[in-house]
Every structure is written in C-alpha cells, then in structure tokens.
Computed example of a mutant assay.
Amino acid sequence: METFLKQNYTIITHGIEFLAVLVGILCLKKYKRTTARYFIYFLIYVFCVDFIGLYPSMYGKIEWLSVVKNSRFQYNYWLFTIFYILGSILFFMFYFNKILINKTYKTAVLLIGSISFIIAVFYIVFNIDLFFIGFLALLSVLGCMSILAYTIFYFIELLQSTKILNFYKLLDFYISIALFFWWLITTPVVFYSVYNSTEDWDFVFLKWQIFMFSNLFMYLTYAVGLIVSKPITEDHL
C-alpha cells in the first residue's frame, strides 16, 4: 500500500478531481440557468489551483523555478491557504447565501463567513512567517466551522420543506453532503502536520490515505450529483 501511494497518490487525487471537473463542464449547459453553474466554475478554479500548487515538485525540472525555490514562496502552503481555505470560506458563503431561502439562515451565513474571513486575515498578518512554511491550524478550523455551519443551515431548511421528498434529485444536497464529511474528516489531520515529513512515513501514509479516500468520496459525489440531479433555475429558488 505504501509503495502504491508513493507512486500514484498525486495521479489518483488529481485524476478524480479532473473527472468531477470534466463532468461539470459537460453538464454546464444543463445548469446554465441555475446557481449550480457557479459551483462548476469553482470546481474548475480549484483544479487550476491544485495544478499550480504542484510547482514544488517541478524544482530541478524547470529552470526558472529556481527563483521561487530560493524565495519565501518555496513551499505551496501560502497558495492553498489563500486560494483554497480562504477561497472556500468566501465562495461557499456566496453559494449558500444564493441557495438558501430563509432570510435568517442567509444572514447567518454572511455573518459567519465574513467574521471567519476577517479573523483569518488578521491571523495570517500576525503569523506571516508560519504562513509560508506550513498550514495554520486555526484557519482550517475556521474553514471547517464555516462550511459545516453553511451545510447545517441547508440541511435544516431542506428538512423543513417539501424538497426533502426528492432530495436525491438536488445537486445542492450532494454538494452539502460531500462538503460536510470532507471538512469534518480532514480538518483534524492539520493539527498533526508537524509529523508530516520523511522522518515519519507512517504519518505521511496515514495522511495520504485519509485525504485520498476523502477526495474520492467528495469528487465522486460531486460527479454523481451533477449527472443525476434535476436543475432548479434561480427563479424557483
């Protein structure tokens, strides 16, 4: 298993991510008049961020990257912190505010997202050196708490409406389920990132397994949801 992960972790992770993006692009026409189109754009955005985030593995293969290797941007932690963790807080704040109907829930989503983002920015400013060399656990917790809050509001509203009778046809249900479990499962791993080195391969393999299976679940859920769901136009939200 360890050898398999070493050789195929990146391929599997980005492969399943690309599958979800491909399905999203193929289904874009289907969802062109719905809020779901923004989610498809976000999938493409995340895939691009992940692809750019591979730059540390290119040191020695691309000559001009030597400039980056000898700078504060040597590691890709800053990239994923800004464009994935903070990006997720903001995007899903926008997305869930769009799909929720209850005004109290919509306001709560905006409030939670805004406060989390502001706290995160200040935390980065006061921990700027750590920001470039590792993941900041507090930011992952803020992201997790925000996403879980958004999805819980959605689940409560779904249970209180007649939509629950056809939940399996709702893309937002698949998105919420995938997000809820992915953040809930992966966030605790960040607290042990100090062990993420070649000196402790047992933890590295455990981390890879957790993220690989979490990503498989999340992106397959996205892909299935995009295929089987029935579009709901923004006019009917």
Rank of each mutant, 00 (worst) to 15 (best):
K6C: 02
T10H: 04
I11H: 11
I11T: 15
T13K: 06
H14F: 08
E17G: 10
K29I: 11
T34F: 01
R37P: 03
R37H: 12
Y38W: 15
F39K: 05
L43V: 12
V46H: 11
F47R: 00
C48Y: 10
F51Y: 11
Y55I: 08
M58V: 03
Y59W: 04
W64C: 12
L65P: 09
S66K: 13
Y75H: 11
N76C: 04
Y77N: 06
W78G: 00
L79E: 03
L79T: 05
L79V: 07
I82E: 01
I85A: 08
I85C: 03
G87C: 14
F92G: 04
K98D: 13
L100E: 01
N102Q: 08
K103L: 12
T104N: 10
T104A: 06
A108I: 05
L111M: 09
S116L: 03
I118F: 14
I119Y: 10
Y123C: 05
Y123H: 15
V125S: 03
F131W: 03
S140Q: 07
M145F: 10
I147Q: 12
A149N: 00
T151E: 11
I152V: 14
Y154C: 04
F155P: 07
L159N: 13
L159V: 00
K163Q: 14
I164T: 12
Y168L: 06
Y174H: 08
S176I: 01
A178Y: 03
W182E: 10
W183C: 03
I185L: 13
V189D: 02
Y192A: 10
F203I: 09
L206P: 01
L206T: 12
W208F: 13
W208D: 06
Q209M: 14
F211M: 01
F211I: 10
S214E: 04
L226F: 07
I227M: 11
S229Y: 12
I232Y: 09
T233Y: 07
